[in-house]
């Protein structure tokens, strides 16, 4: 929402990347700007406007256009829908999925909203305290989570299609990364922690092909 420069026109901001990397002048880049705006669903007639004249959803679309300006192969989308309304959120996610298919993009979607990830991603890595706790195909991770943290996180989400109760939550605070806890980083908040967790950091075990979890409970011997 605040990533755009408020004193520059939208066309300038998109053209900037093209001019810098593709050895074009700003004027030459305008054709590509129009193309990009059409791609993300903004009327190109509005390209000479300033960011404040756009709504939140439109601004996010402009950001996407900027990201696509140099025809990247991979996009890192950092919380692209967090500050948006549900309806706009759905519009943006639809757009991202569409672009990803059309342009054959790879995308790293960073989000704290598990439901957004569940609806859009192929594979997912759950991070905790600076480490990957679980990694695998989205479907598998969401339907059969292997790490207690993922399990707790999934349970704590209100689900409009689920029962009408307040979900349980994971008590406690995330660890202080100046002095990360010894052993498993999640052991202080883990309901299933046992003695090994306190001293030894679990490696990424592979309970299932392609599905990794960093938890002692998933060690082949236990």
């Amino acid at each position: 929402m605040n990533a755009l420069n408020p004193v520059k026109r939208v066309s300038w901001q998109i053209a900037e990347a093209i001019a810098l990397h593709d050895n074009m002048s700003f004027d030459e880049a305008q054709g590509r700007v129009v193309e990009l705006l059409e791609l993300v669903g903004i009327n190109p007639a509005r390209k000479e406007e300033y960011p404040h004249e756009f709504s939140g959803g439109m601004r996010q679309r402009v950001m996407i256009a900027m990201a696509l300006a140099c025809r990247p192969k991979i996009i890192i989308a950092d919380e692209p829908v967090t500050a948006l309304d549900v309806m706009i959120q759905a519009q943006i996610l639809e757009l991202l999925t569409k672009l990803q298919k059309e342009l054959d993009l790879s995308m790293i979607l960073i989000s704290h909203d598990l439901s957004v990830i569940a609806q859009t991603c192929d594979r997912v890595a759950i991070m905790y305290g600076g480490k990957i706790a679980e990694y695998g195909p989205a479907e598998e991770v969401f339907l059969d989570p292997q790490h207690p943290y993922t399990q707790g996180l999934l349970r704590s989400f209100p689900d409009i299609y689920g029962p009408r109760d307040l979900p349980p939550w994971i008590p406690g605070q995330p660890p202080n990364l100046l002095e990360p806890p010894e052993g498993c980083r999640f052991h202080e908040r883990c309901p299933l922690a046992f003695d090994v967790c306190l001293v030894q950091e679990p490696p990424l075990y592979q309970p299932r092909p392609g599905h990794l979890a960093s938890c002692h409970l998933r060690a082949p011997s236990s």
Partner: peptide
């Protein structure tokens, strides 16, 4: 429409 776009953490 509003209800249909609420994402669910259950992908199925």
């Amino acid at each position: 429409a509003l209800i249909s776009v609420v994402p669910s953490p259950n992908p199925s």
